[in-house]
Simulated scan of single mutants.
Amino acid sequence: MNALARTETPILAGPSQTRRQAARDDRDSARLLPGLLLAAGIAAPAFALRHLPGLSSFSPMIIAIVLGIAFHNLVGTPAAARPGVAFSMRKVLRFAIILLGLQLTASQVAEVGATGIAIIAAALVATFTFTVRLGRLIGVDQKLAELIAAGTSICGASAVIATNMVTKAPDEDVAYAVACVTVFGSIAMFVYPLLPGLLQLGPHAYGLWAGASIHEIAQVVAASFQDGQQAGEFGTVAKLTRVMMLAPVVIALGVAARQRAKSSRAAQSSPAAPMPWFVLGFVAMVGINSLIDIPAEAKAWIVSLTTFLLTMALAAMGLETDIRKLRAKGLRPLFLGLAAFLFIATFSLMLVKLLG
Score class of each variant (00 low, 15 high):
256 A>H: 08
81 A>Q: 10
240 L>C: 11
262 K>D: 15
181 V>F: 02
231 A>S: 14
343 F>A: 05
325 K>M: 14
119 I>N: 02
187 I>F: 03
336 L>W: 00
179 A>I: 05
150 A>R: 00
45 P>Q: 15
235 G>I: 02
42 I>Y: 09
60 P>D: 12
240 L>V: 03
354 L>A: 11
166 V>K: 02
64 A>Q: 08
150 A>I: 00
76 G>T: 11
79 A>P: 15
100 L>G: 12
177 A>D: 00
352 V>G: 14
212 A>K: 12
209 W>G: 15
290 S>K: 10
106 A>T: 14
273 A>N: 10
165 M>L: 01
296 A>S: 04
75 V>F: 10
81 A>H: 08
131 T>K: 09
274 P>Y: 00
228 G>Q: 12
320 E>F: 10
68 G>T: 15
224 S>A: 14
205 A>D: 14
151 G>V: 03
314 L>S: 09
23 A>H: 09
227 D>C: 07
93 L>N: 10
278 F>K: 05
287 G>V: 15
310 L>W: 01
11 I>N: 09
119 I>A: 00
76 G>S: 07
223 A>I: 13
242 R>L: 09
221 V>M: 03
116 G>V: 06
2 N>V: 10
214 I>D: 07
189 M>I: 13
347 F>H: 09
134 L>I: 11
307 T>L: 08
117 I>E: 12
184 F>E: 12
20 R>C: 14
67 L>W: 09
18 T>W: 10
306 T>H: 06
252 A>M: 13
277 W>K: 03
287 G>S: 08
36 L>V: 12
213 S>C: 04
281 G>W: 13
106 A>Y: 14
19 R>V: 04
24 R>P: 04
258 R>E: 11
345 A>D: 10
54 G>D: 09
184 F>T: 13
39 A>E: 09
257 A>V: 00
187 I>D: 09
103 Q>D: 14
136 R>A: 13
114 A>M: 04
247 A>M: 12
4 L>V: 09
86 A>T: 12
97 I>D: 13
277 W>Y: 03
132 V>R: 12
173 D>A: 14
33 L>Y: 02
33 L>S: 10
153 S>I: 06
158 S>N: 12
56 S>T: 13
126 A>K: 07
320 E>D: 05
155 C>L: 05
202 G>C: 01
134 L>F: 06
85 V>P: 03
48 A>L: 11
70 A>I: 07
163 T>D: 06
259 Q>H: 01
217 I>F: 13
157 A>Q: 04
252 A>Y: 01
34 P>C: 09
212 A>T: 12
261 A>W: 00
112 V>G: 15
297 E>V: 12
68 G>L: 02
78 P>H: 14
45 P>M: 11
48 A>G: 01
134 L>K: 12
120 I>S: 04
223 A>Q: 11
39 A>C: 15
350 M>Q: 06
209 W>C: 00
83 P>K: 08
248 P>R: 08
292 I>F: 15
57 S>R: 05
240 L>G: 08
248 P>Y: 14
146 E>Y: 00
232 G>D: 05
17 Q>F: 05
244 M>E: 07
327 R>T: 01
244 M>W: 02
159 A>M: 04
231 A>M: 02
244 M>P: 04
21 Q>W: 07
259 Q>I: 10
184 F>D: 06
323 I>Y: 11
29 S>P: 05
6 R>G: 03
133 R>I: 15
217 I>N: 08
